[in-house]
Design a protein around this nucleic acid. Structure first.
Lengths: 116, 116
DNA sequence: TGCGAAGATTCGAACAATCGAATATACTGA
DNA sequence: TCAGTATATTCGATTGTTCGAATCTTCGCA
């Protein structure tokens, strides 16, 4: 059982292991939003966004509701927000190390990016 | 900034997005443990374990201390344990769905595995 | 019925992750 | 210095992820 539960946890983490998918979850924090709106807010390619939705759906992180032409997404369980919140504390509890890590990350991949 | 922080969060999630690495973190929950002991407890290949340690080290999830011949690992910040704990609540808050998901996962990859 | 809008799926290319086997490094004790 | 133990790194094969482009499906409305 423990084995399987760990695999389950790993799958949830994996679902969240992409900046775009984190952004989606964060946008859904305060309630549902249509796919179109999410795409607009995050400035994503439609296909790419849809693929990320699919990953989150597959892991049951988000659920969808169809209304006419549109699809509304929402978090299946707001407990996940707590996970993100705890992680936020994690940053601040060691901000300096976080910052130098961010700096490193910025150096590695595509430097000169603006901090939006 | 938000962008970068999301990337940072994604990296942490990614570090945890593997059953073996979750197992390592869970074993370190109550304090440090030597690499050898971890390998023994988890019944891992030495090389493979060391690679997973490297991933966790790179993301600063664990830190190490050398003592003579051995290396002792520990969690850099126990806040991460809270993340795992919240996730545990996440299971139980919807156990039936979790169970059917586990069943699915079992079907997909290598069926007939015993529930250890 | 047919057109347009909203999303989802499929495809192929580029890249990253995982594993075991082999090898390397670091320390200890004889 | 040499042998042995503990751990890390490198390598190559396999598999998985990510992306944009193209295509498909579904719904609403004229």
């Amino acid at each position: 059982m423990t084995q399987e539960l760990r695999r389950f946890k790993a799958e949830i983490f994996h679902a969240l292991a992409h900046p775009t998918r984190i952004a989606i979850v964060e946008l859904l924090r305060n309630g549902e939003m249509s796919a179109g709106k999410l795409i607009e807010r995050l400035e994503l390619e439609q296909a790419n966004a849809s693929q990320h939705f699919a990953v989150l759906r597959a892991k049951q992180v988000i659920v969808n509701r169809k209304e006419g032409n549109q699809v509304f997404y929402s978090l299946r369980d707001p407990v996940l927000i707590e996970v993100l919140d705890v992680l936020k504390r994690y940053f601040y509890s060691q901000l300096s190390q976080t910052m130098s890590m961010l700096k490193e990350m910025r150096m590695e991949k595509g430097s000169g990016k603006k901090l939006s």
